[in-house]
Design a binder for these strands. Structure first.
Lengths: 336, 336
DNA sequence: CCGGAGAAATGAATCGTTTCAAATAAGGCG
DNA sequence: CGCCTTATTTGAAACGATTCATTTCTCCGG
């Protein structure tokens, strides 16, 4: 019963004779032996570990993506090392260093900075890397993203199709890629709507995607002339603030003002009126990212791939679609 | 320039002469050397890794605890291996096995099962272990918990002090420890209230802590005679459902019915009326757990400790405290 | 100029696995 | 019964860092 045999029992059971195998197994659980991944790694070169670097695991968006990734990676024997950077490039660097020392077999990352050179360099040093909710830009990297342009188009398009002609767009700073993309999509919807009837999109930029910025924006929005009959928000927090202000101002939603949000956070459906919103397939995003990673880690001749998901419009009461007849495009109706 | 010297440069710089040290450092970043944690671990016995096993990282309660733990562990050079069990004992076992193979330096865990023997056994095998939001019971284990009895008492006590005499308690099954504790606390508040005036607590048990169970419960609640003037819920999801039903039934909150929730989830403050709720110090819970872990891992003569946090009542509009005069205990007023 | 003390550098052993060439055992066949 | 083939088992080397007993280098006093 030598070390070599024990190793074979664990890794190539078929190569060792049954009686020996049993004797070894018996000894293993008699002594409570647990193999050491570290030694295994040292010899074989795989750590059975994947680094996940994101802005904040307490943010449900990331947490759900992580669940998606965890599902597929767990089934392949990997454990996740989860690292929150809080958007600090310093912290990101430290974590990446540590993960490299741990020789993670792969890396899922939402980088802090727009400039991806550091990440690309790491990937170049042989760590399979997939970008989460960021696209590779110039760099040759795998990525899993959601089409925010399309999302913006869905939200705005929905309102235009319901017959609204003047809609407001409460958006964050366009330095945030997501905000810029959603605006782009909204404008696309606007151009389309204009082919049928006059339509306007009034953008109001706020400096944070928060509830109280939403409240303020809504107040400003009510004093616009002509007053828009619908408002789309760059995320659900803003929408929540807007709903709050409107309710305080006695403006009926959706009758006097239709509202759509973005993200479809867990409580969007619990509000009254329930919030129409654009859902991002977070779980799937993480799962696909993990699959790309496996492909890159295991596949011999890997070609970098980018997967882009379509967001989905979840229609609820706040946009008034049910009453007005959702999706009946091209039949604009007068707004009260 | 031998291996030994390189190692010394990295670990005991003061022992190697300046010129050599610099030569080594230069060589290190010329060749892009990154030390291997695995080899380090093999020799030294520390993996610089902590396992975090919880029910679901996508649940904000756990995610925030993890952030608390991550903060303190990161500063001590540890990386977190996060594992979601989804309450499956099988999955928990597999993860624990893998973490043991990785030789994690510590373990933070919210066990799936009530029976802690397996966990205690693991701890007995030398892995420093701290229970998260579970107390050790019979077993000798460190733990960080929140006093749910106290929380229940706070919530119910608040309503009684506001002058309510008949309050309903929408609670989950008492097989869930948290639910049982909160009920215990509520009854404690009830006994206290009875010393001053007649008071009743009517418990309604639902089988899940979800929004729609809350909606159903609220409907039942309205047909009770005498109709309670206040309702406390075992968590915010239930409270949300209750608010929804009440709003649909045209019952004014808080004037005709006061409502308090439990957990103080992120959107509790965003509802209208904003929800009075009991906040658990999630971040602190994780941070303390991590500190206990470090203490146990590093300290020579460690004594097991349990830290129990006090929850905090966050008073907002839904309980009508502002109008009625919060905290003026002993001055019961008639309820409309 | 020599011996010795202290500083600095070296290299072999070690941690726990896996791998693989070599040794050994077990049959099968003439 | 002895040789050859195939099935098992063995043991040493290797992975990359750390440790520590030794060796080598420096410098100083006698």
């Amino acid at each position: 019963m030598s070390l070599g045999t024990v190793s074979n029992v664990l890794n190539n059971p078929e190569v060792v004779a049954l009686p020996t195998r049993q004797r070894v197994l018996e000894a293993i659980d008699r002594t409570g032996f647990v193999r050491s991944t570290a030694a295994h790694q040292l010899r074989v070169g795989k750590s059975r570990t994947v680094g996940v670097v994101l802005l904040d695991i307490a943010n449900p968006f990331f947490a759900e993506m992580v669940r998606g990734a965890e599902g597929v990676l767990r089934d392949n024997g990997y454990v996740l090392m989860v690292c929150s950077t809080d958007e600090s490039i310093e912290r990101e660097r430290r974590y990446l260093r540590v993960l490299e020392e741990h020789r993670v077999d792969g890396l899922l990352i939402t980088p802090v900075e727009h400039d991806l050179r550091e990440v690309a360099e790491l990937a170049g040093r042989g760590i399979p890397t997939v970008l989460l909710d960021r696209d590779g830009g110039e760099q040759e990297l795998c990525s899993a993203t959601v089409d925010d342009i399309r999302g913006g188009e869905l939200a705005a398009g929905h309102l235009f199709e319901l017959g609204h002609q003047a809609i407001a767009f409460v958006n964050g700073p366009s330095s945030i890629r997501q905000c810029a993309d959603r605006r782009e999509g909204a404008q696309r919807a606007l151009r389309r709507a204009r082919r049928r009837s006059p339509a306007t999109l009034r953008e109001m930029t706020v400096n944070a995607l928060s509830v109280d910025q939403g409240e303020k924006a809504a107040i400003g929005l009510l004093s616009l002339t002509p007053r828009p009959s619908a408002v789309m928000c760059a995320n659900d927090q803003l929408a929540l603030g807007v709903l709050k202000s409107l309710s305080e101002a006695g403006v009926a939603v959706p009758d006097e003002m239709a509202v759509v949000g973005y993200d479809d956070v867990s409580f969007a459906s619990m509000l009254s009126p329930a919030l129409t919103s654009v859902r991002q397939p977070k779980y799937e995003l993480g799962a696909i990212a993990a699959e790309l990673l496996l492909e890159e880690a295991l596949g011999s001749n890997h070609k970098h791939r980018s997967v882009r998901f379509e967001p989905e419009l979840v229609v609820r009461a706040s946009s008034g679609a049910t009453r007005r007849g959702a999706g009946r495009a091209g039949q604009p109706r007068p707004v009260p």
